[in-house]
Amino acid sequence: MITLQTPRLNLRPFTADDAADLLEYLSSPIPSCFAGDKVTSIEAAVAKIAKRQKDEGDYLAVCLNETGKVIGEIFYVKEEPDTYSVGWNFNAQFHGKGYASESAQAFIDYLFDKDDARRVYAYVEVDNVASQKLCERLGMRKEGHFVEFISFIKNADGTPKYEDTLQYAILKKEWQAKRDAAS
C-alpha cells in the first residue's frame, strides 16, 4: 500500500469516506477521457471507490494535508517488467495551484526510487493543454502523436468522437539527471 507525503499533500489509497470529494470532480469530468468515470450520486461514488479498491487498477487519492480533503487522484498501471503508465485527474476548484505538479513529482520519485521503474509515460489528449504542460514541467518528452487514437464520447449523431492523443515519457536516468541539476 503506497502512502506519500509532500509539504502540502498526502497521497494514499481511497476510502469510502472520500465519496463526497470524489463526487465533486467526477460528477462533471473536464477531460473527455474521464467520461467513463462519471458518477452522479454519493452511492455511485462509494461504488466507484469500492471497485477501484478491488479490481480496477491502482489509484491514489491526493488530499490536502491541512483538511484531508481529496482534491484529485493519481493513477497508474505497471507494465512488466519496469514501465509505468501514469495519469491524474483533479477537481477543477484546485487547478492552477501546483497540486498536480507536486503530487506527480512525488509519485514519479517513488516509482523510480522505491519501485525500480525504468520508464514512466503518460497519455494526454491534444486538447488537454494543462496536462501537456504538466508533463513538460515534469521533464517528460513528447514521444508521439496518435491521430484519432481513441474515443471516450460520442458525436451528436451517435458516432464515436475520436481524439488525437499525445504520449509523454521519461526514463529513470533522465529523471535523476533533472533532480541532480535542480539540487
Rank of each mutant, 00 (worst) to 15 (best):
D58E: 13
G139L: 10
Q93W: 00
Y123R: 01
P29M: 09
D157M: 10
E66S: 09
V77R: 10
N91E: 04
V120D: 02
A122P: 05
E125V: 11
Y59P: 14
Y76G: 06
P13D: 15
Q93H: 02
N91G: 03
D115A: 10
A130E: 11
W88Y: 11
D18V: 09
L166E: 06
A177V: 14
S103M: 08
D115K: 10
D127L: 12
D37E: 11
K54T: 15
L23R: 00
V62N: 12
D18H: 13
D58T: 13
K97S: 08
R119C: 00
V86Q: 02
G87V: 08
A20S: 00
T3E: 15
G139R: 08
D109A: 02
K173I: 04
Q5E: 10
L111Q: 07
N89D: 11
A182G: 04
C33T: 03
V46P: 03
L134P: 05
A44F: 05
I153F: 05
E163H: 00
D58K: 14
K69A: 07
K154A: 12
W88E: 08
Q105N: 03
T83L: 02
A19K: 03
E102Y: 09
E24N: 02
K51W: 13
P31N: 08
T6H: 05
C63I: 14
S101A: 11
K178L: 13
Q53F: 15
S85N: 05
G139K: 07
A35S: 07
K38S: 05
E56P: 12
S27K: 01
R12S: 14
I153M: 05
V39D: 00
K114M: 11
E136I: 13
Q167D: 01
T67Q: 03
L4E: 06
K48I: 09
F152I: 01
K173R: 02
A100R: 12
V86T: 05
M1Y: 15
L22P: 03
L9R: 07
W88R: 07
L60K: 13
A20E: 00
D164H: 00
D109K: 08
F149S: 04
E66N: 06
D17R: 13
D115P: 13
D164A: 01
L111K: 05
I150L: 01
W175E: 04
D115H: 09
A92V: 02
G144Y: 06
A61L: 13
